[in-house]
Design a protein around this nucleic acid. Structure first.
Lengths: 198, 198
DNA sequence: GTGAAATATATCGGCCCGATATACTCATAC
DNA sequence: GTATGAGTATATCGGGCCGATATATTTCAC
């Protein structure tokens, strides 16, 4: 109770560290590159998040002379996923699915689909599609009893927004169909593939 | 310096109060309805914002027995735009245009286009289009040297995202063309139209 | 060698959200 | 007649995440 709310960043960091141990700077780069597109995930969020995860024992840090093959570029604190962190990641990926309420949150979950089973993927995709349907209905209701024909900018915004939502729903439909097809051909969760340390 | 950063909510509230004096609850409803679509604009933001705007003298409150035509449903604090608030709104609408960096911010600015002149509208539309072009180039770069063909979810996310951005750019192109056409036929800022009090 | 740019960690102020508390009014059901 | 629930209305609290900023070091171009 009262515990942390959404914590997209936590999930994102756990997901990235699951693939390989990383230091903060590289973490931020991958955050921007792999999960970016929407949010920036600034250092102002990242370092406090890492600190908190250290406190909770989900990651461990190695402030070492390791890999000091000359130079070494300052100290370089490398963060590594612990066993509890791994469990926590698994929990977040499976349990938190229905809470995936906002746009950015979906993007991060989606980008981490490689780490999840088909059942979780389908649940998240369905959840997203349901939310978009709700929003589309809402937008259409507004468009229905909106005032002027074309000179109203709010109206125009809604029109474009509704089209975007329609398109994303269509996109999701395709993904869901593909996922269900794949699930029939090979059941069981996809094997995760942790990469080499960096 | 160090002053407040973006303050979309402030702009939104000023814009709504410009049309008519409102109380908090009604303000929130219009915020959700007219500028919603994306963000919720919860009370947790609204009331502190109103308090701050009171402190700065941009709005005045009338905690009255006014309109107590029986019942009256609790006290009802009606907020009204002051002269300084009106000036502030005008300043935000014109000066802040290039700082319109994020999605929600653009949405609010766009929804308030009825209160601005064609020059401001064009600047905001161009700014938005430029930012989307940057983002599109970024997405395409990622798509170019991305790994697998279709089994990569990140890749799929980028593909869909790039399409959405392309579509929005096209949408903006149309709006800009229309705006320029209109600007040629009737120059000068559009006359604002404050409505009756509520 | 000097300056720009990339690498790297860290903090601070602050916007805004979501949850929550409170209280009053009205309709409908029981 | 009274419980129940929904709508109206104001307000606070904790906290996630952002953007700006500070600070060092290294590397490369010129």
């Amino acid at each position: 109770m009262s515990a942390r709310r959404t914590r997209v960043l936590e999930l994102a960091v756990l997901g990235l560290l699951y693939e390989a141990p990383l230091h903060g700077y590289e973490l931020r780069k991958r955050l921007t590159f792999q999960l970016g597109a929407f949010r920036a995930f600034s250092y102002g969020s990242l370092y406090p998040c890492l600190k908190e995860m250290l406190r909770q024992g989900h990651v461990s840090q190695t402030p070492q002379a390791e890999g000091s093959a000359r130079g070494g570029r300052r100290s370089r604190i490398v963060y590594r996923l612990t066993d509890t962190g791994h469990e926590h990641l698994h929990g977040l990926l499976t349990e938190v699915a229905p809470a995936t309420s906002d746009d950015e949150c979906f993007g991060v979950h989606f980008a981490l689909f490689g780490h999840t089973g088909p059942d979780v993927r389908l649940r998240i995709l369905h959840g997203r599609r349901d939310r978009l349907h709700t929003r589309l209905a809402d937008l259409r209701a507004r468009l229905a009893h909106a005032p002027g024909p074309a000179d109203d900018y709010t109206f125009e915004l809604y029109r474009h927004d509704a089209e975007s939502v329609e398109r994303e729903i269509h996109w999701l439909d395709g993904l869901i169909a593909r996922e269900q097809r794949d699930a029939r051909s090979r059941p069981g969760p996809a094997p995760p593939r942790p990469g080499p340390p960096v």
